[in-house]
């Protein structure tokens, strides 16, 4: 049997090859066939979930509720100290340096990353902009979000903090951070479907000791993960509760 591995579609495009290398290493360690499927966006990934075509997933916290509570996925591991934090940025000449300088109507550029966008929306709440006066412009990547700001197509943009920090100097010097989240509790996680429940302990052991293996450690570095730490089912349930409080 070949298991299907899915990665949350908000992964950095430059990490495509690193995820394939991860999968090669992982299936060798596990001794099972694993096919890595990189979905083009969350809609496609949700369809794969509907079709029961995902056995292992590195999931966005936004999807945790469905995965854990509706589909019965089991939490295995999370990347050590790698929370999803958001940065709201504006063009350097926009005159928007703080939230109280936001005015309606407000155009926001955002990428396809539901947890970052949720955090972004929460952070602008104190600005008292009527939701009816908010125009959201989607972008295929964080670089495109930056371009929309530079071109004056949006007043603010939502970024994953890591992605904002990695923008080129040329791009970054044309932008300014307005506010950054410091939540520390929202993160991606690796989950196993109930189909694989007999493999939980094996998969967990492989991942938790990955950094102790020379090749495994190298792969983790490529993915920007120091090491995997255990994630218990209650940790996942808590994340679901936490996200639930933010989606209101």
């Amino acid at each position: 049997m070949t298991y299907q591995l899915a990665i949350s579609p908000d992964f950095k495009p430059e990490l495509i090859s690193d995820w394939f290398i991860f999968n090669t290493w992982f299936q060798r360690q596990w001794g099972q066939g694993v096919h890595l499927e990189l979905h083009q966006g969350f809609d496609e990934q949700h369809q794969a979930l509907n079709d029961k075509k995902i056995d292992i997933i590195y999931a966005n916290p936004y999807d945790m509720s469905r995965l854990v509570r509706e589909e019965g996925f089991i939490a295995i591991a999370k990347p050590f100290q790698k929370p999803d934090e958001a940065v709201i940025a504006s063009h350097i000449d926009s005159g928007i340096q703080s939230l109280d300088q936001l005015t309606a109507p407000l155009t926001i550029a955002q990428a396809d990353s539901p947890d970052v966008n949720t955090i972004g929306m929460i952070m602008i709440e104190p600005a008292d902009i009527d939701p009816a006066d908010i125009i959201v412009k989607g972008a295929p990547s964080y670089v495109s979000v930056a371009k929309q700001l530079i071109n004056g197509d949006a007043q603010i943009g939502f970024f994953l903090a890591e992605a904002f920090n990695e923008l080129s100097r040329l791009v970054k010097k044309q932008l300014q951070p307005v506010i950054s989240s410091q939540i520390h509790m929202i993160h991606h996680a690796l989950l196993l479907s109930p189909n694989c429940s007999e493999h939980i302990n094996t998969v967990r052991e492989i991942l938790l000791s990955m950094h102790q293996d020379a090749r495994g450690n190298e792969i983790l570095k490529g993915l920007g993960i120091e090491y995997w730490e255990p994630m218990e089912q209650e940790d996942a349930e808590f994340m679901v509760d936490l996200m639930d409080t933010l989606i209101t």
Binding site: I122, M123, E125, P126, A127, D128, F238, D241, L242, T245, L246
Partner: peptide, 12 residues
């Protein structure tokens, strides 16, 4: 119970 507090709208 879990309680999450965020920055409130000053108007509210």
């Amino acid at each position: 119970y879990t309680s999450v507090r965020r920055e409130p709208s000053r108007k509210k």
